[in-house]
């Protein structure tokens, strides 16, 4: 019996995701032990479930692009631009009904804007051959710039109450943002592992030259990746808009580096080719447990940054050590 469990544990510790699962559970247990009645309360659990989906969805977008060896630095710009477009539609046309239909329309419009923005990124990367980090840095500034120009830099408020459904309600007793994130994570994972598109995507990330010689339609694949990233960013934008009940050009600017950090912590290779959605989910959970738990024992917000950074570097050192000894 002990033999068996030891084998299981060493197997668990041999993959980055396994190690992350151990860290995630350890953080949870530690935080629960430090303040059991508050950390384990239903109230804390629901508040955490409302908090993390917005940046977790951005991390999914980042993961998809990183698998191809790229990166999408424009996700926050896209999220804010799409939220502002949606908010303008909503505030410009309120007055009739409770606005459910209108919210649907605005969501569709923002999703379309996100996908067009992603298409623009994809064309720059695939057709013009720009390095993704620079292409998306540039377009990120442009999207944010459009958002500033549309609003003059101020927040759009006074959204119809139906908007709250996306970010502030529960579906079957589960917070809607969490439901949304789970659906998106499962869908992304299925696309990455069960479709030829997903396999090609990782193949290209692992070895672009080999993928080219295998006569893959690389341009089409890259364009679809960035469109998907844009769509995910737009959904994250909707969640942020709904939770803040407003839209502004500079919301969530700290989410950009956080999304990169989560993807990398989740074991995604930023040079492409390797990464699992389960790793990203575990990384998100670890981060959220850490910040909520630390918050409860009275640690400042800034200490979280310190601990996130340390966690990232610690995990990277362990991962490279493990890769070398194997």
């Amino acid at each position: 019996m002990t033999q068996h469990s030891q084998g299981f544990f060493s197997r668990l510790m041999s993959s980055p995701e396994g190690r992350l699962a151990v860290i995630c559970v350890a953080v949870f247990v530690l935080m629960a032990a430090l303040s059991p009645d508050r950390f384990l309360s239903t109230q804390n659990m629901t508040s955490m479930a409302f908090q993390f989906p917005e940046f977790a969805i951005l991390a999914l977008a980042m993961t998809v692009t990183m698998l191809t060896g790229g990166i999408d630095l424009s996700v926050v710009g896209i999220a804010n631009l799409t939220a502002i477009v949606a908010a303008m539609i909503l505030t410009g046309a309120t007055g009739s009904g409770d606005g459910t239909l209108l919210v649907m329309g605005a969501m569709a419009a923002s999703l379309a804007v996100g996908m067009v923005a992603g298409l623009f990124n994809g064309l720059l990367v695939a057709k013009l051959g720009l390095p993704p980090i620079l292409a998306t840095l540039g377009t990120g500034l442009i999207f944010t710039g459009f958002a500033i120009a549309l609003t003059g830099g101020s927040a759009i408020m006074g959204l119809p109450p139906a908007v709250a459904w996306i970010g502030n309600s529960t579906t079957f007793g589960i917070p809607t943002p969490l439901v949304l994130f789970v659906l998106l994570a499962v869908a992304t994972s299925l696309v990455l592992t069960r479709t030829s598109f997903g396999v090609k995507l990782r193949m290209y990330g692992a070895n672009p030259l080999a993928a080219r010689f295998a006569a893959m339609d690389i341009d089409g694949m890259l364009i679809r990746v960035y469109v998907a990233s844009g769509a995910l960013a737009a959904i994250a934008g909707m969640v942020v808009m709904s939770r803040a009940n407003s839209a502004k050009a500079d919301y969530g600017s700290s989410y950009l580096l956080l999304a990169v950090l989560i993807a990398v912590l989740g074991g995604v290779n930023p040079y492409g080719g390797y990464g699992k959605i389960i790793g990203v989910v575990l990384a998100v959970l670890s981060m959220q447990f850490l910040s909520s738990g630390l918050n409860m024992i009275g640690v400042s917000n800034f200490a979280r940054e310190l601990i996130w950074g340390s966690l990232l570097i610690f995990v990277m050192i362990v991962n490279t050590r493990a890769a070398r000894t194997r």
């Binding site: 990398v264 400042s300 800034f302 950074g309 570097i313």
Partner: peptide
């Protein structure tokens, strides 16, 4: 990755 991590660490350490 290193500099992304140390960015958070330096800033977090200073502010905390």
């Amino acid at each position: 990755i290193v500099t992304l991590g140390t960015l958070s660490i330096f800033r977090g350490f200073m502010l905390t």
